[in-house]
Write a protein that binds this DNA or RNA. Structure first.
Length: 1048
RNA sequence: GGGCGUAUAGCUCAGGUGGUUAGAGCGUUGAGCUGAUAACUCAAAGGUCCCAAGUUCGAGUCUUGGUACGCCCA
């Protein structure tokens, strides 16, 4: 198809409304179904060898998207678009995370339920039905938003963690781990609300308002040391603010490195940290007698008599253990350990092999295990316990303690820590293997690999995967309800369930799944029943199952999955090193003994415009939807992806950032397109892309060859960067290219386009087409609009990635042109320094540099750029400059050592000579490689050095009357051009021009009348007085000129 | 308390293996140029390279110890 398709007068405005262009592209994609076509166009290949597998981390959709999702979404779009253009098939299914506490909390709020008991009263079936509706309520908004950001992803064939096939795969994973012996049931200590009768997730205890000041009793208790030791009879002092945990005491802990003392007072001996003795002056005296000193390590293993006798004789219990968390900030430096009621306590006793005791029931009341307090609520029991301690003379001190204490965020009750039965994945068993497999993953930034992620893996703990909740995948374990006939059945598929329970299973959610029961086959009495354990799975187990569960592996797609695991690419923000990245890796290692992904990009956090955390209440960041409509998604994409945030840093999101992306990237690109359509249209130029490319390659014009070589280098650089997932590198390469394209090629080529130069059109069309292709993933909509207009093709995203080999390589030309640009810069600087305006022509510039002949082809270009009549080249630099010595300390330093500093100073002072090729500086003869001889200008009035000492530029600054007159004529041209603009004329309109000028200005115009008329498309030129409101300007120094034009 | 990261111009960041005078973009100021541009070109102002000690002929760069900030763990 011929191009341009767009009429330049209408379709390609000089100042586009970018959001409108984007909407046009989005509409086209919808109607054309371009996304589907982009996937179809690429073969999967044998065993999917040609597929690129990208894992989309499922967002939780019970809230609206924010900038973090936006950023991740852009990356999740860019990489697949690139891989598609490279010829790979990239399926992109959207996923929804639907289970877990966030969903339950939202649902509770919506239903006005306040506790677990209320949910059960309301009905688990109705509650879960409400949760199912709730979690998907924002999906429409997500679709809108993701679509608007030009992210191509399949919402039709999405997956949800609540889908039956997904849940079946999760069940398979559980069973597989169970069969490998990697799942066990055990105790874990959690913050627990005795009123709601539920443990709280860590996040729930970190919410606002949960920590409040509270006054608790604080007791110091003496525990008598027993056994065959000189310390026998002394009392170990322990301090606690939870006296109700003392009946459950199973150990005491000291810090191995802390100094402990035994002090004697009133016939009693007490053992405590030396640093805490002063704090007990009231009971022990001001300076009690120290009868022994021990490091913590020397106390380990000592036996003592517990505060109560309920659990005397438990295996390994009631001894002194070591714990690093013990401090001497408060208390006695010896810590009372009740493993069921303290997370840290349990870590210590687990290490010592001591089984916890839990004499407290679900509602926070003591059980029959501790008869005196049975039935009492733990907080109410504090008083009785303290009283009993006093009675047995174990109580040394009783006072109160004010501290920040967590409360239930739902009901406000003070929480307790309590051990609960829970299911675990034995991560510690394959921790080392996880560390090994991590070596196969490429991380960006690279320090994540052995830093944040590697360290986290090395310290991995067993993973509690059960939740005592309602809305989630069930733990697929059925147990006998009679301990006399124990049996455990674990299920890994719907088929197994249906086989054992004889019903069709269409939903695995509670409460339906709980209704599946059957007689215990191992029970000859036939009375006991197999019932499902009550817990549901941690929703992270489901997120980690995503690679296989989304394809219903192993029940379907087993072959496909085998060939597509690990996935190629994954991107999320840093916190996911402990979240999704980690759990994918845990399950991948445990189930498949492979990593789950090959490449991971970890990005940093987006901050508000003020550099603080984004805050809804502060509104310290631009509104997402407004930004879409103000700047467009491509500009936002560019700003976010070109930023340090993709290299792991934090970055503020500002409107200024979006605006800069528009001004520096999107508009310049658009303007090249506009410029092209304007002049190609005016010249009636049309050529198909292949024709244009052939013509471009045939062009001998240096600017054309330069641009094509630059374009080739662009393709090479961007390809390498994208292959390395270095999106930031790709953006910076494109940005640099755009600079050469707009501010050099187009600017230097205006006259040629004005003249309708076809080689120029062909070259610009070819470069622009290639640039659009190379930038298509980074600016998907603006490049689509331009590319389609330019080529008449269907979509840039269906195009193949450009091949650098299709363009000529000419690095020498690129380098020569860069030198020319340097020369131009220096020339303009010289004019400025000498106050010689650029419109004033000068007679000559001389370029003195080595191999000057290579620059001769650029003489015309330099004449025009510097506005001089002639450009001379001279390789004899010495005629214009003198030698300048530069030392190379890197080489000189090692030889001279200390003397090098003296030589450096001598050279700076000018104390050096060159004789017969021998350089002597500061009395030291220099050897080859220790110095460089370069040049500096001799005649400072007319000469400037080129960068890097490569030569000099000599400017003839003499202004003859002829040159002055020509300068004035050009000044007048400028005023007439402005008058044309002010009259809103089209670039091709012919005019009659009237100039109001006198004296030498008028004389200059008359002398150069043909030039003035030619430049301004004036068929007639006359002189007359013009009113002050006519377009005015300055000619030469301070003389006013006016001009007016009339369209002919 | 521990781990990881960061600290260079007003802002955002570059600165292999140590090497003379630390750079870029944006922003500010001035001038120039302009019938594609919301631009562009040339320049100016703007730096105790977080601090301290050390290694070295020489440290933004290497070592050690601090400080501040961010993230995470406890």
């Amino acid at each position: 198809m011929a191009y341009p398709l767009d009429d330049p007068r209408r379709g390609v405005p000089a100042s586009p409304n970018l959001p409108e262009v984007e909407r046009r592209v989005l509409d086209f994609w919808t109607k054309d179904d371009t996304f589907a076509a982009s996937i179809e166009a690429r073969e999967a290949g044998e065993n999917g060898a040609n597929e690129f597998v990208f894992y989309d981390g499922p967002p939780f959709a019970n809230g609206l998207p924010h900038y973090g999702h936006l950023l991740t979404g852009y990356v999740k779009d860019i990489v697949p678009r690139y891989q598609t253009m490279r010829g790979h098939r990239v399926e992109r299914r959207f996923g929804w995370d639907t289970h877990g506490m966030p969903a339950e909390v939202t649902t509770e709020r919506e239903l006005g339920l306040k506790s677990k008991a209320e949910i059960e009263a309301y009905g688990v079936d109705r509650f879960n039905a409400a949760a199912r509706a709730s979690v998907l309520q924002f999906t429409d908004e997500w679709v809108d938003y993701v679509t608007r950001q030009a992210r191509w992803v399949d919402f039709e064939n999405d997956y949800k963690t609540l889908d039956l096939p997904y849940m079946e795969s999760v069940m398979w994973a559980f069973k597989t781990l169970y069969d490998k012996g990697l799942i066990y049931e055990g105790y874990r200590v959690l913050w627990y609300c005795w009123r709601c009768e539920t443990p709280l997730a860590a996040t729930e205890t970190k919410m606002d308002d949960t920590y409040r000041d509270r006054q608790d009793p604080a007791v110091t208790v003496g525990l008598e040391i027993t056994g065959d030791t000189p310390l026998a009879g002394a009392k170990l002092l322990v301090w606690t603010t939870t006296p109700w945990t003392l009946p459950s005491n199973l150990a005491a802990a000291v810090h191995p490195d802390v100094d402990y003392v035994v002090v004697e007072t009133e016939g009693h001996r007490y053992l405590l940290a030396e640093a805490r003795v002063a704090a007990y002056a009231r009971e022990l005296g001001d300076e009690p007698r120290v009868v022994a000193r021990h490091k913590g390590t020397e106390l380990l293993g000592l036996a003592y008599r517990p505060p109560f006798d309920f659990f005397v004789g438990r295996e390994g219990a009631h001894r002194v253990l070591a714990a690093d968390y013990v401090t001497t900030d408060d208390g006695t430096g010896v810590v009372h350990i009740a493993p069921a009621f303290g997370e840290e306590d349990k870590v210590v006793t687990d290490a010592a092999g001591i089984e916890p005791v839990v004499p407290v029931d679900d509602s926070g009341r003591f059980t029959e295990d501790v008869p005196p307090y049975a039935g009492m609520h733990v907080f109410d029991a504090n008083k009785a316990i303290i009283k009993d301690l006093k009675a047995t003379q174990r109580l040394l001190r009783h006072d109160t303690y004010n501290h920040n204490y967590p409360h239930c965020w739902r009901c406000g009750s003070p929480l307790i820590q309590r051990a609960l039965s829970a299911w675990f994945v034995a991560v510690t068993r394959f921790r080392d293997r996880m560390v090994e497999l991590n070596q196969e993953i490429d991380w960006t930034p690279s320090h994540i690999k052995d830093g944040q992620f590697g360290k986290w893996l090395a310290g991995a703990r067993d993973w509690n995967i059960s939740r005592n909740r309602f809305w989630g995948s069930p733990i697929p374990v059925w147990t006998s309800d009679d301990p006399a006939y124990p049996r455990v059945d674990v299920y890994g598929s719907l088929e197994e369930l249906e086989r054992d329970f004889g019903v069709e299973v269409t939903d695995l959610h509670r409460p339906g799944i709980d209704e599946l029961t059957r007689p215990n086959p191992d029970d000859p009495t036939g009375k006991s029943v197999m019932r499902r354990v009550p817990e549901v799975l941690d929703c992270w187990f489901e997120s980690g199952s995503m690679p296989f569960a989304q394809v219903h592996y192993p029940f379907e797609n087993a072959d496909w999955f085998e060939h597509h695991y690990p996935g190629d690419f994954i991107v999320e923000y840093t916190a996911q090193t402990r979240g999704w990245f980690y759990l994918l890796h845990v399950l991948a290692t445990a189930l498949f003994d492979r990593p789950a992904f090959r490449t991971a990009l970890v990005h940093g956090t987006l901050l508000g415009a003020d550099g603080q955390k984004m805050s809804k209440s502060l509104k310290n960041y631009p509104d997402v939807r407004v930004s879409f409509e103000e700047y467009g998604s491509d500009a936002m994409r560019w700003f976010l992806v070109a930023s340090p945030v993709l290299r792991g840093g934090d970055m503020p999101v500002t409107e200024a950032g979006f605006r800069d992306a528009v001004r520096q990237i999107v508009l310049p690109l658009w303007n090249v397109w506009y410029f092209y359509t304007l002049y190609a249209g005016a010249a009636g130029y049309e050529a198909a892309p292949a024709e244009a490319r052939a013509a471009a390659l045939a062009s001998e014009h240096q600017l054309d060859r330069y641009l094509l070589a630059k374009t080739r280098e662009l393709v090479e650089t961007v390809t390498a960067a994208m292959d390395a997932y270095d999106l930031v590198g790709a953006t910076s390469a494109f940005r640099a290219y755009l600079e050469s394209l707009t501010n050099w090629y187009v600017r230097r080529s205006r006259d040629r386009f004005w003249e309708g130069d076809e080689a120029g059109f062909a070259t610009l069309a070819t470069a622009l087409k290639t640039a659009c292709e190379a930038a298509a993933p980074l600016l998907p909509m603006i490049t689509e609009d331009i590319w389609r207009g330019l080529t008449g093709g269907r979509s840039v995203h269906l195009a193949d990635w450009p091949d650098a080999a299709d363009l000529p390589a000419d690095h020498d030309l690129v380098e020569a042109m860069d030198t020319v640009r340097d020369i131009a810069s220096v020339g303009l600087f010289m004019r400025k320094a000498r106050k010689l305006r650029v419109r004033l022509p000068l007679a000559k510039v001389t370029v003195a540099t080595g191999h000057a002949e290579r620059l001769e082809p650029f003489a015309e270009l330099l004449k025009d750029e510097l506005n001089v009549k002639t450009v001379e080249f001279d390789s004899n630099i010495d005629a214009y400059s003198k030698a300048d010595l530069k030392l190379v300390p890197r080489v000189l330093g090692p030889r001279l050592g200390k003397d090098v500093q003296r030589v450096i100073k001598a050279v700076k002072a000018g104390d050096w000579t060159v004789e017969d090729g021998t350089v002597t500086a500061g009395g030291v003869v220099l050897e080859d490689g220790e110095y460089e001889l370069t040049t500096i200008a001799v005649d400072a009035d007319h000469t400037e050095a080129l960068p890097r000492g490569t030569g000099v530029l000599v400017l003839d600054t003499e202004v003859t009357p002829e040159l002055a007159a020509e300068g004035l004529a050009r000044d007048v041209v400028r005023v007439v051009q402005q008058a044309r603009k002010d009259a809103d004329l089209d670039v091709t309109d012919r005019v009659a021009a009237v100039v109001d000028a006198a004296g030498d200005v008028r004389a200059a115009v008359e002398a150069h009348a043909d030039f003035v008329k030619g430049e301004t498309l004036a068929l007639e030129l006359s002189f007359a007085d013009l009113p002050p409101e006519a377009t005015g300007g300055e000619a030469g120094e301070g003389r006013t000129v006016r001009a007016a034009v009339r369209k002919l």
